Simulated assay, not measured.
Amino acid sequence: MIPLSILDLAPVTEGSNAAQTFANTLDLARAGERLGYRRYWLAEHHNMPGIASAATAVLIGHVAGGTSTIRVGAGGIMLPNHAPLQVAEQFGTLASLYPGRIDLGLGRAPGTDQPATHALRRYYQGAEEFPADVAELLRYFEPVQAGQTVRAVPGAGVAVEAWILGSSLFGARLAAALGLPYAFASHFAPDALDEALALYRREFQASARLAKPQVMLALNVVAADTDAAAARLFTTQQQAFINLRRGRPGLVPPPLASAAAIHDYCTPAEKAGVDRALACAVIGAPGSVRDGIAAFVARHRPDELLLTANIFDHAARVRSFELVMQACR
């Protein structure tokens, strides 16, 4: 069976708060560990009322400290928002506390809007700076060299598994050139998926960190006892995405009365847009999920899947991940 991992968007649901979200995050991570998921990743977002993982490294420490074996990491850290040295120090600290369990996924998008980007006080000139920042960051994890004037303490000589994240050819080309594993954001931006994977595999250059291409694909997966029940749960993610496109991000909404009710919630153009963005989704009862995941894997040949499920009810979300693992086994 292909390894399965979890991407937790740390949802803050209507009627809840960040404290409850963090309790739910740890509960889901413990369930994922028990069920056999390989990794548990959290993503950096800012100025998003429905996502509580802005202080990503802090939350990773919370999860790693409450679990024992599952790998925990960032999917990812948005490097334009940070000085590479600070990221190296944070993840060097995490990897020193939880050796052999910390992943660092790196993205070049700010993960927020322009006002919040300005408020973060990191004045980033453009995407062309990202490769240099990644190279600088990775150097801080190497053993200290004679005459080196700046070092990450902790960080230098500490093993942290680094990934390049992407949704375009830019990240695929960079990951290939640096010989790093590549995670593609197909759960919300699948348009360039096939071309990016082909480029990454074709141009990959082996490195001290990785001998051959390694691909992880993100996939929306919602499982329930019936196809109809799962489709209804998925309307939470559909609403949240439509709200974001409308420029009104908010708390994560409860599901609609039925899957068909989404047509009353939005215009046909909005529905077409959300269908395209969330095209990489497997929704249904366990049998449907098993077949859908198998078809996705057969088409794209990933080495690992990163599953996300933005489900309103926490118990239903945990149950979804349980059903998925049972189905795939």
Score class of each variant (00 low, 15 high):
229 A>K: 13
16 S>G: 13
182 Y>I: 08
279 A>H: 05
210 L>F: 05
227 D>G: 11
150 V>Y: 13
271 K>T: 01
311 I>K: 00
232 R>A: 02
51 I>R: 07
40 Y>P: 05
192 A>T: 07
6 I>K: 08
91 F>V: 05
242 I>Q: 05
131 P>S: 06
196 A>G: 08
244 L>S: 10
216 M>S: 13
195 E>K: 11
69 T>V: 10
70 I>F: 06
81 N>H: 00
89 E>W: 07
27 D>M: 12
320 S>R: 09
316 A>V: 02
128 E>H: 15
32 G>T: 05
146 A>C: 09
306 L>G: 00
210 L>Y: 03
238 Q>A: 12
113 D>E: 12
54 A>H: 08
19 A>V: 14
83 A>R: 12
164 I>W: 05
94 L>R: 07
311 I>W: 00
220 N>R: 11
240 A>E: 12
320 S>C: 10
291 D>L: 14
113 D>P: 01
207 S>V: 02
85 L>V: 08
285 A>L: 08
300 H>D: 10
160 V>M: 06
146 A>V: 15
165 L>N: 06
28 L>G: 06
104 L>K: 03
265 Y>E: 09
121 R>C: 10
290 R>Y: 11
178 L>E: 14
285 A>S: 15
48 M>A: 13
50 G>V: 04
232 R>V: 04
183 A>F: 04
38 R>E: 14
314 H>D: 09
13 T>L: 00
304 E>Q: 11
295 A>Y: 04
34 R>V: 00
295 A>N: 09
163 W>R: 05
148 Q>T: 01
119 A>G: 07
254 P>N: 05
291 D>K: 15
178 L>P: 07
189 A>I: 12
328 C>V: 15
52 A>M: 06
120 L>W: 04
36 G>R: 09
57 A>E: 13
314 H>I: 07
73 G>T: 04
147 G>H: 08
154 P>Y: 11
228 A>M: 01
10 A>E: 06
3 P>F: 07
